[in-house]
Amino acid sequence: METLRWQDHTLYLLDQTQLPLTETYLTCTRWPAVADAIRCLAVRGAPAIGVAATYGAVLGAQKIAGETTDAAAFGDRFLAVCDALEGTRPTAVNLHWALARMRDVAAAALKTDSCTAVVGRLEAEAMRIDEADREINRRMGQFGAAELAQLGRPLTILTHCNAGALATAAFGTALGVVRALHAQGLVRMVYADETRPLLQGARLTTTELAADGIPVTLITDNMAAWTMKTKGIDAVIVGADRIAANGDTANKIGTYGVALLAAAHGIPFYVAAPVSTFDRTLEDGTGIPIEERAADEVRQCGGLATALPEISVFNPAFDVTPHEYITAIVTEHGVLHHPDSQVLHEFFRKEGI
Results as ranks from 00 to 15, higher is better:
Q300D: 05
D319P: 10
G303Y: 02
G302N: 15
P309D: 04
A317C: 08
E292N: 10
G303M: 02
A294D: 12
G302I: 07
F318Y: 15
D319Y: 10
P309Y: 09
A317T: 12
V298S: 05
E297I: 00
D319K: 06
A317L: 11
E291G: 03
F318M: 07
C301S: 10
G303D: 02
S312M: 11
E310Q: 08
D319W: 04
A307Y: 01
A294H: 07
V313H: 13
L308W: 12
A305T: 02
T306Q: 14
D296C: 06
R293D: 07
L304S: 05
F318H: 12
R293E: 12
E291A: 01
T321S: 04
A317P: 14
L304G: 01
A305P: 03
E291K: 03
I311N: 05
R293K: 08
V320G: 02
I290M: 13
P309K: 11
T306R: 15
A295D: 15
N315K: 08
G303H: 09
E291S: 06
A307Q: 14
V320P: 06
A305F: 03
T306N: 03
C301A: 10
F318C: 09
R299Y: 09
A295K: 03
E292W: 07
E292F: 03
L304M: 04
V320M: 04
D296R: 11
E310F: 15
V313Y: 10
D319E: 04
F318W: 09
F314K: 11
E297F: 01
P309M: 11
Q300V: 00
G302F: 09
V298N: 05
P316M: 05
E297S: 01
